Simulated assay, not measured.
Amino acid sequence: MKQLVVAERVSLIGHIVSMVFGLVGILLVVPNAELILNLSEFGQTAMQWSMAGGGVVYMILGAAAVLLYASRTLGVGRAVAFLLPAVLISLTSELLGTSTGFPFGHYHYLSGLGYKIAGLVPFTIPLSWFYLGCVSYLLARAGLEVDTKPSLWRHIGAIGLGSLLLTSWDFVLDPAMSQTTLPFWYWQQPGAFFGMPYQNFAGWLGTGAVFMTVAALLWKNQPIKFERSQLNLPLVVYLSNFAFATVMSLAAGFSIPVLLGLLLGVTPAITLWWKASAATTQVTIEPATQEVSVASVKVALK
């Protein structure tokens, strides 16, 4: 278990460091290529690595950190039961989107995110759906106390909130990543939301809701009880990826997407994380009280 925790933390740190390198490369090096000449040999090598594979590495490490975390806290079975629907359903949506325009609109990926499946979708994209989708769903599910008082509406609420957190991150990321000096995807039909079609966000909500629903059904009604400290990794992953997208958007001059993301993504995520501790306390105390009551009755009968 200790080795698993170490691997998880190393992956998380590498994920965050890779994002920082990516920001430096995209925002400083690409617009000012002459800066590389003033760096040391090590610095030049680091920048070249960042531009060549930084995007691929940060998504692989993010997926690795979340998969290790989910395996440790939920069990391998439930971790895989989220991974497979998230990857397969998001890949299907992305392949449809890049070939037909449904459900996101007409777009295609450029270079920089790794090998393209069927020549259309970089293999790293379904991984990003998985790790951002997983942390979003776990924050929503724990914050809504789904397993303290199980009900259909709480499960629906967790899926809805998880999908909203996931889509709110895309509010901030998508406009910037498609309009930087070195864009990663291109819209054939730019839309009204800072170059994004509104259909794109409907596609994100729908795709996230579908694979979260499938995962919830595969998990059945098995209890998932988290203390606030156990949700630190999901929150850190969500906030660090939001910070990456925020820096990109602000550098591109897009402040409204950031404000929307803060309102609909960051604020609910922190609130749900904060609520999780109270939910766990109730689960822990109630059985203890019941045991004491039963014990008292037995003594009285004697």
Rank of each mutant, 00 (worst) to 15 (best):
Met1Ser: 14
Val5Trp: 08
Ala7Arg: 15
Ala7Thr: 07
Glu8Arg: 15
Arg9Gly: 10
Arg9Met: 11
Leu12Tyr: 00
Gly14Ser: 14
Ser18Thr: 09
Val30Asn: 05
Pro31Ile: 03
Glu34Gly: 12
Leu35Glu: 03
Ile36Cys: 11
Gly43Lys: 12
Thr45Arg: 13
Trp49Thr: 10
Trp49Met: 09
Gly53Ile: 10
Gly55Val: 03
Ile60Asp: 06
Ile60His: 08
Gly62Pro: 07
Ala64Trp: 02
Ala64Leu: 14
Leu67Glu: 06
Leu67Thr: 08
Leu68Gln: 02
Tyr69His: 11
Tyr69Leu: 06
Ala81Phe: 06
Ala86Asn: 01
Ser93Ile: 01
Glu94Arg: 07
Thr98Ile: 08
Ser99Lys: 08
Phe102Ser: 14
His108Thr: 03
His108Gly: 04
Ser111Pro: 02
Gly114Thr: 03
Tyr115Pro: 08
Leu120Gln: 09
Leu120Ile: 07
Pro122Ala: 04
Pro122Arg: 03
Phe123Tyr: 10
Pro126Cys: 05
Ser128Arg: 05
Phe130Cys: 06
Tyr131Cys: 05
Gly133Leu: 07
Val135Gln: 00
Val135Cys: 06
Gly143Asn: 03
Gly143Thr: 03
Val146Asn: 04
Lys149Asn: 15
Lys149Gln: 14
Gly157Cys: 07
Leu164His: 04
Thr167Leu: 07
Ser168Asn: 01
Asp170Leu: 09
Asp170Phe: 05
Met177Ser: 08
Thr180Arg: 11
Thr181Ile: 07
Thr181Met: 09
Leu182Met: 10
Gln188His: 08
Pro190Ser: 09
Pro197Val: 04
Tyr198Gly: 13
Asn200His: 07
Ala202Gly: 11
Ala202Pro: 01
Gly208Cys: 10
Asn221Thr: 13
Phe226Asn: 02
Ser229Gly: 09
Ser240Ala: 13
Ser240Val: 07
Asn241Trp: 04
Ala245Trp: 01
Ala245Glu: 04
Thr246Glu: 02
Val247Tyr: 04
Val247Asn: 10
Ser249Ile: 00
Leu250His: 03
Gly253Ile: 02
Pro257Tyr: 05
Val258Trp: 00
Gly265Tyr: 00
Gly265His: 00
Thr271Lys: 06
Trp274Lys: 12
Ala276Cys: 11
Ala279Trp: 11
Thr280Cys: 11
Thr284Gln: 15
Thr284Asn: 15
Thr284Glu: 13
Glu286Asp: 15
Ala288His: 12
Glu291Leu: 14
Val294Cys: 13
